[in-house]
């Protein structure tokens, strides 16, 4: 049709289903890790070890999905611990062992999450506060809620919640199924709905999105609301899985939540989000700890390995390899 070059052919082709570079990177890394486990630490891959660690991978995955939504919009959410912990204490304290009160508790937790997310969103998306500051403040307020509800004392979770969150179907923990279901929802909404497609575009370039008249602020607010809802889901699962959850259950999730987002390939500067990669990264990080544990490394080494994996992951995505290559192969030219 046109001279030279390649005219855009095969319009109907489904090439969008081709995996992205980010997905390939994290999937290959995970496969390599599984291989390493099989060779060096087979005990990490036993049913017992996996069924012990997978629920935590699932929870990390859900929290990571929430953090990803915020990071995609160029934000950063430090209110993860507060959000998770509040859901945990509401679900374990309010019913106080009474299964009948559980639905109310869940509804209450969700309402709290919506309010917290909305406040975050308004502070950041509309009042233009820095995301770090606003979510530090929100985190403190959420913890105030945690102590108001629990007084800092752990309480045993209800039977019903324990069976919902901790049960198994065909040997797969419910929490894993929940994580997969939430991933499916996030993925579908993001990739196949009008709102999701706009959401991605706004994260990738808010200025361009505004120039074509998209409601940029509303979508940014939504990111924080949905993130809190996901943290809340994670908190409810924790409340069910852990027999006696503490008030600080969410603290240990903050840094890993950022780590899995970064390892999943989502840029901290905002842009496209990678839900599937994020979830695989959560599995990767959990398996990495398991691996380190199985080969007998102390806790310290596990942490250092995680830091290195994170650094390596960032390097893979953020180094401009091509720019680096030209830097070494030819002298640079300054363009005016």
């Amino acid at each position: 049709m046109q001279e030279g070059g390649y005219f855009l052919a095969g319009i109907g082709s489904r090439r969008s289903l081709r995996p992205t570079r980010e997905l390939v990177t994290v999937a290959v890394s995970t496969l390599v890790l599984i291989l390493l486990c099989a060779l060096l630490a087979p005990s990490a891959l036993t049913y017992g070890a996996l069924s012990g660690s997978l629920p935590f991978a699932a929870i990390l995955a859900i929290v990571g999905l929430g953090q990803m939504l915020v990071v995609q919009q160029g934000g950063f959410d430090l209110s993860v611990p507060g959000g998770v912990s509040l859901a945990v204490v509401i679900a374990s304290h309010y019913p106080a062992g009474d299964d009948a009160l559980l639905p109310t508790a869940v509804a209450l937790a969700l309402v709290c999450a919506l309010v917290a997310g909305l406040v975050n969103g308004v502070l950041i998306g509309i009042l233009r506060l820095n995301a770090i500051i606003a979510t530090i403040g929100m985190n403190a307020l959420l913890y105030a809620g945690v102590f108001a509800v629990s007084g800092g004392v752990p309480r045993i979770t209800t039977q019903l919640l324990a069976s919902i969150a901790g049960g198994e179907i065909f040997g797969i923990g419910h929490s894993v199924l929940f994580a997969v279901a939430l991933l499916a929802v996030v993925w579908f909404v993001m990739k196949h709905t009008v709102a999701g497609r706009r959401f991605e575009a706004i994260g990738a370039n808010p200025l361009a999105s505004r120039a074509i008249g998209l409601p940029v602020k509303q979508h940014q607010v939504m990111a924080y609301v949905l993130a809190q809802v996901l943290y809340c889901c994670a908190g409810l699962l924790i409340a069910g899985i852990t027999t006696q959850p503490t008030a600080f259950q969410g603290d240990s999730l903050l840094l890993p939540s950022v780590a899995v987002v970064v390892l999943g390939g989502t840029s901290l500067l905002g842009g496209r989000g990678f839900p599937v990669s994020t979830v695989i990264a959560a599995f990767f990080l959990t398996l990495l700890s398991q691996f380190a544990l199985s080969v007998g490394l102390p806790y310290s080494a596990q942490t250092i390995i995680q830091a290195l994996a994170l650094g390596f992951g960032i390097a893979v995505y953020s180094l401009r390899w091509t720019a680096l290559k030209t830097l070494f192969t030819s002298s640079r030219e300054v363009k005016g």
């Binding site: 830091a307 994170l310 960032i314």
Partner: peptide
């Protein structure tokens, strides 16, 4: 190395 400030110091934090 073109890390964002958050990413670099977060990795350092964990390390």
């Amino acid at each position: 190395a073109n890390f964002t400030a958050i990413a670099a110091t977060l990795a350092m934090f964990i390390g």
